[in-house]
Design a protein around this nucleic acid. Structure first.
Lengths: 222, 222
DNA sequence: ACCTGAACACCGTTCAAGT
DNA sequence: ACCTGAACACCGTTCAAGT
């Protein structure tokens, strides 16, 4: 899985510089940040960026995969400490909060959640996806909650993922109509005011996830 | 409100050509369609497009305002024919379907629903908004449903609008991570396959709105 | 094996020159 | 009063030439 041969020293260094520049750029300008700019800030040629990360998505994945895995691992912790239903709610809250705070994360889950029916991790065309850890995590939590009778049985992992994704977008500040050219406008709002806006959005998220979970509760009860 | 002086004949004609070209382009390429291309297809210079529609959003509004008003008016019809709660559900379904079928509509509501707390129509900075008719429509339906005891009282119009927006995004095919450059990619999917995808998405929407409304039901009942 | 940076095709936006 | 289209600044992507 990892590269068979270690990278040449300069390549490895360039890769890291690119990643560092990308982290900053995505945080400041959003997931649409100029790739050319990232290459320049990293002090490498444009071609070098494409050699390491052939698509914007590849770069996004490289930047956020750690974060995604960290969120996925929280599922296990919460499952140990809370009853199944509460664990699911708590985890969805954390996932939603991550998506609100980090535009790149939202973008990644957006494109991962598009179309298709429920399918096992990595299925849907065998195309491996950096969001698979999230899929596996939610699948475990959902199954446990259903077996505990705290979640209706006619919803699947993908339903839950899609709904939280939608709810996060419904809460978010710089909500992503974001077509070409939005990145520059959003730049200002990205630097300052994020803390304030994210706070409000975080409260909303909690409320909305709560509402959603009442709807997802076992039929007839309550 | 309407222009004081009638437009010169050629201006009027150009405006209409631009609108016609924009309708086609937005339908085919999504809300990120090239403005330059729209001007070319309309057979006018780029400057003429900017004279009539200074921003992309202005063009989007001009293209979809009729559609938005039509959806808003459906609220009155449904309110007459159905009990308050059912009317709200039905209307939200229609709104969501519109957003699923029409990317431009989704983009418009996206940027209208961003940030801010509940506020009356047109409020939130006096900036008039083409989605105000939707706000007024949902406000009436929400109030009626609350007075009929069929909707919890701790949710506002904006909450409901945001949630439906989020749910529509959760359902949609070409779900809008859509940052710079996506327009061209989405072009293929925009032409064919939309009918098929929209059907699935429509079914999902109905399910999700249903789930949501169970969560939004009056507290404690059911 | 990897890097550089010029080159190409595109897009949004403005503005002098036209009618 | 309105239109045209060249001009400018940007961006993504590729690729020949370097080391």
């Amino acid at each position: 899985m990892a590269q068979v041969r270690p990278m040449r020293a300069d390549a490895r260094r360039n890769r890291e510089r690119l990643l560092a520049a990308a982290v900053e750029a995505f945080a400041a300008q959003g997931e649409g940040a100029s790739l050319d700019d990232i290459a320049k800030r990293a002090g490498v040629g444009a071609g070098t960026l494409y050699r390491h990360f052939p698509t914007r998505r590849a770069l996004l994945e490289a930047v956020y995969s750690d974060r995604i895995e960290a969120i996925a691992e929280r599922a296990g912790v919460l499952a140990e400490r809370l009853p199944a239903g509460a664990a699911l709610v708590a985890w969805l809250g954390e996932l939603g909060l991550g998506m609100i705070q980090t535009r790149g994360l939202r973008a990644l889950l957006s494109s991962s959640v598009r179309g298709g029916e429920d399918a096992g991790p990595g299925a849907g065309g065998s195309s491996s996806d950096c969001c698979d850890p999230l899929r596996r995590a939610v699948a475990r939590l959902v199954r446990a909650a259903q077996e505990a009778g705290e979640l209706r049985r006619d919803v699947g992992e993908t339903d839950v993922l899609r709904l939280v994704h939608g709810v996060a977008i419904a809460c978010g500040e710089a909500v992503g109509g974001g077509s070409a050219g939005d990145a520059r406008d959003a730049g200002n709002a990205g630097d300052a005011g994020d803390a304030e806006g994210a706070e409000d959005a975080g409260e909303r998220l909690r409320r909305y996830v709560g509402l959603l979970m009442e709807g997802l509760g076992p039929r007839g009860s309550r």
